[in-house]
Design a protein around this nucleic acid. Structure first.
Lengths: 142, 142
DNA sequence: TGAGTTACATCGAAATTTGATATAGTTCAC
DNA sequence: GTGAACTATATCAAATTTCGATGTAACTCA
């Protein structure tokens, strides 16, 4: 079985243009949201590790994280295993923002999925484990 | 047939964290790439229409477009049907950038898809029309 | 131990984004 | 057809974000 990856890429690109814009509340910049999301998934993490995912240079990330700490969304504590490093994690409030955006996406996506046929919903359900596998492969690969 | 939209959302969110970062060349900001992508899909388009998609205020978009015009990626011409408006479109070079990023995604996604099983690839192939439908529904809905 | 490296912070400059406002074109009730 | 209200885009100065260069402290390992 072969997939038309060319077309698959286009389909995902187009889907993402709508998916990315699902959450209705626009309080934070792309950079900020990306940092919050990464910390939400990756648990406590050093600045340098964050740097790998975020499309920012280190001084910009340092200052963004400083601002997020001031705003009470991120907490910083020294890494016990390395005196140079800081461990970053989300505060309760930080997690709350990520969760609320996620909930918003779920709500909006539900409205869309409701308009599909049963068969289409079945296909979507089956695709979930495959997308998950693909995500894992990408992480290993990198 | 019901889908666990809660899980579906998470799956897509996680997939996107890797998908968004697939293209290896990082020459342009998120705002710039989004404008180029929107113009690539939406054909010639007025500044105000672009504004609806992009997460920028009007003056920022005006200045971004001005820069892109200077750089030869976007062309601006008066809208014949409205003397106040400008029609924006990609130049050949602008299209080339979008195409090259797309090609890069295709290449990287191909490497990932190659590592799936035949059955998984079949599921992926079947999911394409559904994702497309979902995208269309979202556009109508909005 | 000390030379080289790594993690993060600081600083000033450059780039981006914003709110307020200006200008020119359009619409529509009269 | 005229003018009041509205719309599309531009301009400007201020705020914010990002960057490159460089500093400081901690770690590594020969």
């Amino acid at each position: 079985m072969t997939v038309d990856v060319e077309r698959l890429t286009t389909v995902i690109e187009d889907f993402n243009t709508i998916f990315i814009r699902l959450p209705s509340v626009r309080r934070f910049s792309f950079s900020t949201l990306s940092v919050l999301h990464t910390l939400a998934r990756g648990g406590p993490m050093r600045l340098t590790d964050l740097l790998a995912t975020e499309q920012l240079k280190q001084p910009a990330l340092t200052s963004l994280v400083a601002k997020l700490e001031q705003d009470g969304l991120v907490s910083r504590r020294p890494d016990p295993s390395d005196g140079r490093a800081m461990l970053l994690s989300l505060t309760r409030e930080g997690r709350q923002i990520v969760r609320s955006r996620h909930a918003n996406r779920v709500a909006q996506l539900t409205r869309l999925v409701d308009q599909l046929t049963d068969d289409e919903r079945a296909v979507l359900a089956d695709s979930m484990p495959v997308l998950t596998r693909l995500t894992e492969i990408a992480k290993e690969d990198a």
